[in-house]
Deep mutational scan, measured.
Amino acid sequence: MAAGGDHGSPDSYRSPLASRYASPEMCFVFSDRYKFRTWRQLWLWLAEAEQTLGLPITDEQIQEMKSNLENIDFKMAAEEEKRLRHDVMAHVHTFGHCCPKAAGIIHLGATSCYVGDNTDLIILRNALDLLLPKLARVISRLADFAKERASLPTLGFTHFQPAQLTTVGKRCCLWIQDLCMDLQNLKRVRDDLRFRGVKGTTGTQASFLQLFEGDDHKVEQLDKMVTEKAGFKRAFIITGQTYTRKVDIEVLSVLASLGASVHKICTDIRLLANLKEMEEPFEKQQIGSSAMPYKRNPMRSERCCSLARHLMTLVMDPLQTASVQWFERTLDDSANRRICLAEAFLTADTILNTLQNISEGLVVYPKVIERRIRQELPFMATENIIMAMVKAGGSRQDCHEKIRVLSQQAASVVKQEGGDNDLIERIQVDAYFSPIHSQLDHLLDPSSFTGRASQQVQRFLEEEVYPLLKPYESVMKVKAELCL
Rank of each mutant, 00 (worst) to 15 (best):
4 G>T: 10
4 G>I: 15
4 G>S: 12
6 D>R: 12
8 G>A: 12
10 P>L: 13
11 D>G: 07
14 R>S: 15
15 S>Y: 06
21 Y>T: 02
22 A>L: 10
23 S>Q: 10
23 S>H: 08
25 E>D: 06
27 C>F: 06
31 S>Y: 01
31 S>F: 02
33 R>K: 14
34 Y>G: 15
34 Y>K: 09
35 K>W: 07
40 R>W: 08
41 Q>M: 14
41 Q>G: 12
42 L>A: 06
42 L>M: 15
44 L>F: 10
44 L>P: 06
46 L>M: 11
50 E>K: 07
51 Q>K: 06
51 Q>R: 11
52 T>C: 08
55 L>D: 02
56 P>E: 07
56 P>V: 10
58 T>D: 03
59 D>M: 06
62 I>E: 00
63 Q>S: 03
64 E>V: 09
66 K>I: 11
69 L>K: 04
72 I>N: 12
73 D>E: 05
74 F>E: 10
76 M>L: 04
77 A>N: 15
83 R>H: 04
92 V>M: 05
93 H>D: 10
96 G>L: 05
99 C>Q: 01
100 P>C: 07
101 K>H: 03
105 I>P: 05
107 H>P: 02
107 H>Q: 04
109 G>W: 00
109 G>Q: 02
110 A>G: 14
111 T>A: 00
112 S>G: 11
112 S>Q: 01
114 Y>Q: 08
120 D>C: 04
124 L>V: 08
127 A>I: 07
128 L>V: 11
128 L>M: 13
132 L>N: 15
137 R>H: 08
140 S>T: 14
147 K>W: 06
148 E>P: 03
149 R>Q: 14
152 L>K: 13
155 L>C: 03
155 L>P: 04
158 T>H: 02
160 F>M: 01
162 P>K: 00
166 T>V: 01
169 G>I: 01
171 R>E: 03
172 C>W: 10
176 I>G: 05
182 D>G: 08
186 L>C: 13
198 V>T: 12
205 Q>N: 09
205 Q>K: 02
205 Q>M: 04
206 A>E: 08
207 S>L: 02
211 L>S: 11
212 F>D: 08
212 F>K: 06
217 H>V: 12
217 H>I: 12
219 V>L: 10
222 L>P: 01
223 D>Y: 03
223 D>T: 10
226 V>G: 01
227 T>D: 06
233 K>D: 08
240 G>K: 07
243 Y>L: 11
245 R>T: 03
254 V>Y: 15
254 V>G: 13
261 S>V: 03
261 S>D: 02
262 V>C: 12
264 K>T: 03
265 I>W: 14
265 I>Y: 12
265 I>R: 02
269 I>M: 07
272 L>V: 08
272 L>P: 00
274 N>G: 02
280 E>Y: 03
288 G>H: 11
290 S>R: 02
292 M>A: 03
295 K>P: 02
296 R>W: 07
307 L>N: 14
307 L>D: 00
309 R>E: 07
313 T>C: 10
316 M>K: 02
319 L>S: 00
320 Q>G: 14
326 W>K: 03
326 W>Q: 09
328 E>R: 01
329 R>W: 01
331 L>I: 01
331 L>E: 01
335 A>P: 03
337 R>Q: 05
343 E>H: 11
343 E>Q: 12
346 L>P: 05
350 T>L: 13
351 I>E: 01
354 T>S: 11
355 L>Q: 04
357 N>C: 05
358 I>P: 03
359 S>L: 06
364 V>G: 03
367 K>D: 03
368 V>W: 02
371 R>Q: 02
371 R>V: 01
374 R>N: 01
382 T>N: 15
387 M>A: 08
390 V>F: 06
392 A>E: 10
393 G>K: 08
397 Q>K: 10
397 Q>D: 11
398 D>N: 13
398 D>P: 09
411 A>D: 00
411 A>Y: 05
412 S>I: 04
414 V>H: 09
414 V>M: 13
415 K>D: 05
416 Q>M: 12
418 G>K: 00
420 D>F: 05
422 D>L: 05
422 D>Y: 12
422 D>E: 13
425 E>W: 13
425 E>R: 12
427 I>R: 01
430 D>A: 15
432 Y>P: 04
432 Y>L: 06
432 Y>G: 10
433 F>I: 06
434 S>M: 12
436 I>F: 03
438 S>M: 10
439 Q>G: 11
440 L>V: 09
442 H>R: 12
443 L>I: 14
444 L>A: 04
446 P>D: 02
456 Q>Y: 07
458 Q>V: 12
462 E>V: 07
463 E>R: 12
465 V>A: 11
469 L>S: 14
471 P>S: 13
471 P>T: 06
475 V>D: 10
478 V>Y: 09
